[in-house]
Lab assay of single mutants.
Amino acid sequence: MSIQHFRVALIPFFAAFCLPVFAHPETLVKVKDAEDQLGARVGYIELDLNSGKILESFRPEERFPMMSTFKVLLCGAVLSRVDAGQEQLGRRIHYSQNDLVEYSPVTEKHLTDGMTVRELCSAAITMSDNTAANLLLTTIGGPKELTAFLHNMGDHVTRLDRWEPELNEAIPNDERDTTMPAAMATTLRKLLTGELLTLASRQQLIDWMEADKVAGPLLRSALPAGWFIADKSGAGERGSRGIIAALGPDGKPSRIVVIYTTGSQATMDERNRQIAEIGASLIKHW
């Protein structure tokens, strides 16, 4: 067993022997301040990774656009098919120029040779490549099948209805392509620590998230040296922004954090800054 596999296998073990965790309302004060600064709703939840206990939450059962955070769930569904012998990570998928959609920095470079399922998941999570996500959605049967996968996990809230990039439209009061912070946090925890996926697939999923290259201005910008984070960000229309993450000190994750916002007129930089400040408060009061 590799060191990384050992780390993920012992996530519940280490967490069980940690000192009790206590909620700190100071972080919620910052979440509410972010709402004021952005002029928009902000949803927040913080779960203990081992027990699933909610440590703090704000608007945990209000719907927010998922945006690209759905790509972690998508690759979880792909990995479940791999575990069941219905898919192979090494299978190569070929596609054409007509398949390319807006923001496809990886797939646009491989029109000639195609990409493997493993490479597509890596591109979808680490670079948020939209064509990679659409190609992977095709392998599982489309958005409705991802929703069905989530329902089978016990998540009857999260739903995907459309493809990239239309799913980022974020129309107010439109339930399409949305989740709730509580539902997303619980589902992410199941994917990373539950028995739904094999140990190898859980490790692969967290490795992809740990290698995320496009979430630097968010929670990662607030992390002290030595902290662990595996995350996936999302951005959408109407001032929408979000991030889902597993993080913790001492090089291992111990909490799940989900943050979503929508309806702001603020710039992307300002949305990023507010999420980073929430992260800084979380870490300060850990």
Rank of each mutant, 00 (worst) to 15 (best):
L191M: 10
D250S: 04
R271S: 08
I259G: 01
L197G: 07
T147V: 04
M66Q: 14
L146W: 06
I93D: 02
P181Q: 01
D174G: 09
S68W: 01
M67S: 15
P143H: 05
P143W: 03
L79V: 11
T187W: 14
A246R: 03
L197S: 08
L223R: 08
P253T: 07
A215D: 02
L282P: 01
E56H: 05
L223Q: 08
T198F: 08
I256W: 02
G242W: 00
G114Q: 11
L167Q: 05
V117I: 14
L47W: 10
R162H: 09
T179H: 00
D250W: 03
D161P: 00
R273N: 04
S254V: 06
M180T: 11
G52L: 09
R255G: 03
I45S: 12
R176Y: 05
A84C: 14
Y103P: 12
I125V: 05
R238A: 12
S240M: 08
M180S: 13
I243S: 02
F228H: 11
N152Q: 13
T261A: 14
S68F: 01
M115L: 04
P249T: 13
L146T: 04
D207S: 10
I259W: 05
E87N: 05
K252V: 11
G251S: 12
T267I: 08
A276S: 06
A34N: 03
E108V: 13
S264I: 04
R118K: 13
I140D: 02
G90L: 07
E119K: 14
M66I: 09
L199G: 07
Q97P: 08
R91I: 07
W163L: 08
G194N: 13
N168F: 00
L282Q: 14
A276I: 05
L136K: 00
L218T: 07
K71Q: 00
D161Q: 05
L55I: 09
T126S: 04
L38Y: 14
T193E: 04
N130D: 06
E119N: 11
D48P: 02
P224V: 07
R241V: 15
D48V: 04
P253M: 09
R41V: 13
E102W: 05
R81Y: 06
R273P: 02
E210Q: 13
D155V: 01
P143V: 07
D113E: 04
G226N: 06
R63L: 08
S122E: 05
P165W: 12
T139D: 15
R91V: 05
L218P: 08
I259N: 02
K252R: 08
D212L: 03
R41A: 12
S68T: 01
L38A: 09
Q37I: 09
A84V: 13
E87Q: 11
K32I: 08
L100H: 07
R238M: 03
A170L: 05
Q37E: 05
I140L: 10
V29Q: 15
T178A: 04
L146K: 00
A266V: 05
I54S: 12
F64D: 01
P249E: 06
D231T: 11
S96H: 10
T27W: 02
L38R: 05
L47S: 10
I45A: 12
S233D: 00
V117A: 12
G234V: 01
L160S: 08
M127Q: 07
P172I: 04
E26T: 15
F58W: 13
I54P: 14
W227Y: 11
A40G: 07
P249W: 07
G251A: 12
A230Q: 01
R238Y: 15
I278D: 00
V101T: 14
D83I: 07
L197Y: 04
R202S: 10
T158G: 05
E87P: 02
A185H: 00
G239I: 00
V82M: 11
T186C: 14
L167T: 07
P65G: 05
H94K: 04
G114D: 14
R271H: 15
Q203F: 07
D161M: 04
A84H: 15
P253D: 12
L137R: 01
N130R: 01
H94L: 07
A222K: 14
K190N: 08
V257R: 01
F70H: 09
D174F: 03
A185S: 09
S68V: 01
W208T: 03
A235I: 09
G234D: 01
V214S: 15
H24T: 10
G154M: 14
Q265F: 05
A266N: 04
N130P: 01
N98Q: 08
L219Y: 03
L219M: 11
S122A: 10
F64K: 01
T139M: 12
G114V: 03
V117W: 02
A182D: 07
D231I: 12
V106Y: 14
I54Q: 11
S254G: 07
E61T: 14
F70V: 13
D33A: 04
N272R: 05
L100I: 09
Y103S: 07
L111Y: 13
I54V: 15
L47E: 11
Y103C: 09
H151D: 04
E26H: 15
E35C: 11
E277V: 13
V117F: 05
E119F: 02
S281Q: 15
T187H: 11
G154I: 02
I283R: 14
L135K: 09
R220H: 13
A77E: 10
A132F: 01
A230P: 00
E169Q: 09
R202P: 02
Q88Y: 14
L79W: 01
G114E: 04
K30C: 07
L55K: 14
I140A: 12
I140W: 08
R91D: 12
I125Y: 01
F70L: 11
L49D: 02
D212Q: 07
K71A: 00
E62L: 04
F228E: 08
P105V: 11
S96G: 09
R118D: 14
E102Q: 05
A84T: 13
A185N: 00
L136Q: 02
Q265M: 09
L199M: 10
E175F: 08
L135N: 11
L38K: 09
R91H: 06
L218V: 05
L135F: 08
R162Y: 03
C121W: 00
E270H: 03
K190G: 11
E237W: 13
N50E: 06
T186Y: 13
Y95D: 01
A230S: 10
T158N: 02
S254C: 12
T116Y: 09
G216L: 12
P181V: 08
L167S: 07
A230K: 00
A133V: 03
A183N: 15
E61D: 13
L197K: 11
P249R: 11
D174C: 05
T69S: 10
I275N: 00
R176I: 06
S240D: 05
G141F: 09
L28D: 10
W286Y: 11
L111R: 11
D231K: 11
R238T: 04
